[in-house]
Design a protein around this nucleic acid. Sequence first.
DNA 1: GCCAATATGTAGGATTACTAGCTATCCCGA
DNA 2: TCGGGATAGCTAGTAATCCTACATATTGGC
Lengths: 114, 114
Amino acid sequence: MRPDAQALKGHLDVLLLAALAAGPLHGYAIKEALREGSGGRFDLPTGTVYPALHRLERAGLIAGSWSVVDGRRRRSYRLTDDGESRLAGERANWREFAQAVTGILERNPWPVTS
Amino acid sequence: MRPDAQALKGHLDVLLLAALAAGPLHGYAIKEALREGSGGRFDLPTGTVYPALHRLERAGLIAGSWSVVDGRRRRSYRLTDDGESRLAGERANWREFAQAVTGILERNPWPVTS
DNA sequence: GCCAATATGTAGGATTACTAGCTATCCCGA
DNA sequence: TCGGGATAGCTAGTAATCCTACATATTGGC
């Protein structure tokens, strides 16, 4: 993989679900919301966003519906009940994960184990 | 991949480098250090640890040397200078990343973007 | 008339961390 | 004494993820 790629490290799904927490959005709007909400850090290529949304829809965590706005077709997604509870679980999971990683990275000096 | 797997999500390398920050350790000791340092959350299988160490060594971030202790052969690893600066960079990177993710997950209510 | 922004999509590939399996030694308990 | 757990190392194969690159189409500004 390219040197600087793989920036999301497995947390894409939570981010997408979180973007939908406040109400339905279409794919492109989600992409923009994440870019702005992260101060430009998560500027996801469309080849990342759309397949991920399809995956989440297949998993029943979001539900999509087509519409046409200004002559452009859109697929708007909303969180399902499963998606809602999954988001809650993943939020808790993230907090634990982040705390564990931070704990290890910031441990200084490291207690001698061997 | 199995449903609950992939727990490390791309952060394995930083964790391994961080475990070596306080001085050389061999693979098994690194595995134990991460398990204890994370309160049991990062209990890595050896099939995860050893290939990752080989990868880091190939990349020149750590350097290994064989020894024999109590009849068991060991490969001890230390951080190289490159590994040291990589660790510093990855630590900073983690802080930014974690802050961005937390910011998005905890944003409530989400500002309407579209 | 052209190009950026908006909007959606697929194909294929690089990387990652996992499961499953293997070898070998030491030490403790039955 | 014999077995098994802990220690210590390894590989092969695989599922998943996110990326690049490409394709399509509309709207609106220059």
